Structures are given as structure tokens and as C-alpha cells.
Simulated assay, not measured.
Amino acid sequence: MQTFDELDFDVFSNADWARLDESHARNIRAHWPDGHYTDGLDQHIADLVALFAWAPNTRIKSHPIRIAMNELTAVTGVMQGTFTRPMADGKGGFIQPTGKKYAINMATVGIWNRQGVMDEEFLFWDNQTFYQQIGLA
């Protein structure tokens, strides 16, 4: 659980992607709240970079619920930030920032290997609430 706390509180919250391999396997499969998944640490980092591109102050500072059993961990937290920079729309354009803050409940479930890093990560949050808070829904 200490590694998970450091992942969210230090690595994620400070966008220190060079340290992501401390908690993630090179071939990590990451499942995202919209239903898609990616394979590989490089792609996972690219997705995280894209998340921080439009909300560079994104952060998670607490895990009120922390569960660990064998190779499984699960934590909850509040991911928060502010939509201050243009967001890629996936069609070659950009959505202009609204300046709105967000604070959404999130959960992460991890499956860890014998080397002490995650082979698979499941990310959960309510995208509808997220988009409402940043002014896109």
C-alpha cells in the first residue's frame, strides 16, 4: 500500500512519469473508465500526459479506503484539478478551457506481480459527473 500511496500522492500528482515504472510493469494493461484499455507503459504514460495537458494541477492527495489482499489492491480517493488549458477533442481540434474545477471520486484496483509492480490496473470514476464539473456536459 505504501507504493500505491507514493504512486498517487507523489508520482501521479506531480506528473513524474519517469518514476511510473516503480509501480507499473513495462507491459501493464490499464483499463480506463470509458471502457477502453491500453497495453504497455509507454501508452499508459501517453494517456496520463494527455490528461494533465488540459488540467496540469490534477492530483490525488488521500486514499480514504485502502484494501490489500495477496496480489490485489484497491484504493479510493478524490481526483481534482482545473480545466485551464485546451483539451484535444480526438478529431484534430481542441476544446477551449472553461476554468472550472473538478473533484471526482475515483477508485483504482491493481493486480501486482512478484516484482512488486502492477501488471494490470483498473481506473474508475464517473465520466458524466466529471464532464459536468468541467463544463462539457
Rank of each mutant, 00 (worst) to 15 (best):
F9Q: 14
P56G: 11
D119G: 09
I111P: 00
A15M: 03
T82V: 08
A107F: 00
E71V: 08
V78L: 08
N70W: 14
D34M: 00
Q2A: 11
M106N: 04
F83K: 01
T129H: 14
N70K: 15
K61H: 14
G77R: 02
T73A: 08
V49D: 09
L123E: 10
Y131E: 13
S62A: 15
T129R: 14
R26T: 14
N14Q: 14
I65C: 01
A88H: 01
I104Q: 12
G81I: 02
D126S: 11
D39N: 12
S23C: 12
G99F: 04
Q133N: 07
D8L: 14
I67C: 07
L41N: 12
L123P: 00
V75A: 11
P64I: 00
L51D: 15
M1V: 13
R19T: 00
G77E: 03
R85H: 12
E6M: 07
Q128N: 11
S23I: 05
R114A: 13
P86F: 00
A18C: 02
V49I: 12
M87R: 04
D21C: 02
E22H: 07
R66E: 12
G135T: 04
H31S: 00
I45Y: 06
S62L: 11
N105G: 12
I28T: 01
Q2P: 01
Q80V: 01
T82M: 04
H63N: 09
Q115E: 12
Q115P: 02
P86D: 01
W17E: 06
N27Q: 15
P56A: 09
G116L: 05
A103S: 11
M79P: 03
R19A: 10
T84I: 13
E6W: 07
L48N: 10
A15Y: 01
G116W: 05
S62E: 15
N70M: 14
G40W: 08
Q133S: 07
H31L: 00
E120T: 01
H24D: 02
